[in-house]
Amino acid sequence: MIEFFRGRAAREDRFTALVRPHLRLMHRMAYRWTQDQRDAEDLVQDVLTHLFPRSGELEAVEKLGPWLIKVLYRRYVDLFRRRANSPIDESAPCISDDAYFQEQLQDDRNRFHQLELQRLLNRALMELDESWRDVVLLHDVEGYTALEVAEILDISVGTVKSRLHRARKKLKSVLEPGTVKAVATC
């Protein structure tokens, strides 16, 4: 009955045009962090809700993809990580989404070995120190440059490289001969 502020439709369309190309990437990244598909969708939705009033700011951003991931990361830390670290909230810490890999393994026998290794790597990632994990997820898994990772996480490029080096060293142990066999028999 009441149409309030007709200019909003145009603003809404602009907002949609800006963020839509990045939604799947945001979902994937949210999933990497939360290891839960529903949480990932909720996180993306929450970020968009907060961003809509800042549509004008979005239009001025040069590289919107990494910028959105940075906003997503901050929101993830606020909503999930701080809550998980709270002594009051006994929420379970982030654990790897083994169920997803289990589905994949059933569906894709040909890549069994690779998927099994990746499942192990995913578990190992979730057991890493959070600050190391963030760097690996962004740099090695999603392919952001060290400079972009530094910008997203608000740390120096040097710190990105050193964390990456340490994290990879730890993750390599997962790939050592015998590891897969030992886990596969469980």
């Binding site: 997803y100 690779q114 290794l117 990746q118 390599k172």
Partner: peptide, 17 residues
């Protein structure tokens, strides 16, 4: 070993929304 690790990480699957 590092190359192998990075290749596995780079192709790490994730569910579609």
């Amino acid at each position: 070993e590092e190359l192998r690790l990075v290749n596995l990480l780079r192709t790490m699957p994730a569910p579609e929304p």
